[in-house]
Nucleic acid binder design. Structure first.
Lengths: 140, 140
DNA sequence: GTTCTTGCAAAATATTTGCAAGACG
DNA sequence: CGTCTTGCAAATATTTTGCAAGAAC
């Protein structure tokens, strides 16, 4: 993705441009699986962890990324839907492979029109399936 | 629940009886929401954390409890289904209230016959909805 | 006596915050 | 200047393990 596109995405989400934010977002656009804070720290040449951390918090809040927790860590993924501040729409399945320890989106398995009991105000849905991914399966 | 019933449940799951295991299981039968390791430690009069920890691991493995991760902690809940070692069937929704920070089962929202893309071997499903529960909602 | 369980201590891992310096408008 | 962002250091929270003593079979 072009630098211009990254800038456009950030300003569309009303996030002031900084070079760290561009770096982090660029990274998200390049990986296909979910990444943790520690992953990013390593991938970004050991940039400062708390800066990345706060960038992730900002991104998640503003609807650029979403997260799921698995294996005792928070994994972050790009939103493919049109999420905005306070309105996440990532109602698709995620898959955590217990072998390669990677989390991915499985948008094919989507949920529409879930009905909740009365009185529940739903803000966000987090679906994770655990198992073995096709790749690891074939290596056995 | 009677002590006898607790013992019966443990032996049905092929878990050797110990007093700590009985204490932990008794606790699960008494609470209506999910509990974390720290919760249990406190509820059990500050019994040893690592003993409780290993008890939880045993219970989860043997299909007495299941867990979901939210708010950076692992929350444990009794299995209501007929789970056994290696076969968890807790394919129901969980709800995490961002206000009271409690996690509960929402078995009304169940999923049957989920279809995954080819090649994925699914072992377990973890569904969490985040939002505000009826109780907290009504207190606003 | 061999295996399983417990308790204590401590390690390992992950998340989060305070604060001062710097960047930006 | 005033606000937002960064980097460093450190605190906090949570999970996990080593090991020796004790319990159970």
């Amino acid at each position: 993705m072009e630098t211009q596109e990254i800038e456009a995405l950030l300003s569309r989400k009303k996030i002031p441009l900084t070079s760290m934010r561009m770096l982090v977002l660029k990274e998200f656009l390049q990986v296909s699986t979910a990444v943790s804070l520690a992953d990013l720290e390593e991938r970004l040449n050991h940039s400062d962890r708390s800066t990345i951390y706060r960038t992730l918090k900002t991104f998640e809040k503003k609807g650029i990324i979403h997260s799921v927790q698995e294996n005792n860590t928070t994994q972050y993924l790009l939103c493919h839907d049109h999420c905005t501040e306070g309105h996440h729409h990532d109602t698709h399945m995620h898959f955590y492979c217990t072998q390669c320890k990677k989390t991915t989106c499985l948008e094919e398995v989507a949920f529409e029109n879930l009905t909740f009991p009365k009185g529940y105000k739903i803000a966000e849905l987090k679906f994770v399936a655990k198992g073995i991914c096709p790749k690891c399966q074939s290596l056995q």
